[in-house]
Amino acid sequence: MSSIKIKLKDKDVEQIKEICGSFNNQAGELINVLHKVQGVFGYLPAEVQEVVASELNVSVAKVYGVVTFYSFFTMIPKGRNPVSICTGTACYVRGAEKVLEEFKKELGIGVGQSTPDGKFSLTCLRCVGACGLAPVVMVGEKTYGRVSPDGVKDILKEYED
């Protein structure tokens, strides 16, 4: 997994330490810690994982092993407007794949990537449980239901500066 090289500020390190401390620096709380830390930073760059590893006294390899196991964790920062296509079965049979293709075409990026300007990122997610609205697309917190490939441009238009 490629990562963006960053330098953590002292206050960032302090914040990570605080989060680990709030879980008593217990190794068994690794996943809860990662959830919290990703909540703060938006993603989990290598430098962040190293601080977590040393605070919880586990090897950084183990932390990385956990981060790369779970699809919820990411080492790549999301775009300002993260686009998520539901690829659950209900959405699939109602044409999610075509909608995904259209987003890829319109944004010019693949799944798991961000546009160069950092405005959009594209991911797939499993069932969001809004199967009645299939196919479903989420942009940030907003849910779009019954999306057709033709509607993709209109959705993206809403996020023009």
Binding site: M1, V58, S59, A61, K62, G65, T68, F69
Partner: peptide
């Protein structure tokens, strides 16, 4: 207990 190697990805 060196901890360099771990299973990664899935």
């Amino acid at each position: 207990t060196v901890g360099v190697l771990s299973a990664i990805n899935r």
